[in-house]
């Protein structure tokens, strides 16, 4: 499972283990699964899709002013504004 964290300046919105997260990167959407190579990207304003398990309905969260970092520890998305 992928460890996913969504953080805003005011609070830690999510910190959980999920199957896959699809992030709207500035240069195109990308999906992050467990074991993804270290990676940093800015995120354009849009929707993050969180798949808890394979094939499940994704949960959608609107983000603004985001930044994503994939490291050995998992995926961290820093966003200035979050809705949903």
């Amino acid at each position: 499972m992928l460890h996913f964290e969504l953080v805003t300046p005011a609070r830690l919105v999510r910190s959980e283990a999920v199957w896959q997260v699809v992030v709207p990167g500035t240069e195109g959407e990308f999906g992050v699964l467990e074991g993804h190579a270290p990676f940093m990207s800015t995120v354009k304003d849009g929707t993050i899709k969180i798949y808890r398990t394979q094939g499940a309905q994704p949960e959608e969260i609107q983000v603004q002013g985001g930044f994503a970092e994939v490291s050995a520890k998992g995926l961290t998305v820093l966003a200035e504004h979050v809705e949903g």
Binding site: G25, E27, P38, F39, M40, S41, T42, F67, S71, A72
Partner: peptide
Amino acid sequence: NDGGAVVDYEPDEEAI
């Protein structure tokens, strides 16, 4: 130290 792993940047470091 990320265990020496090479980090990919998208767009490049300066833009980020």
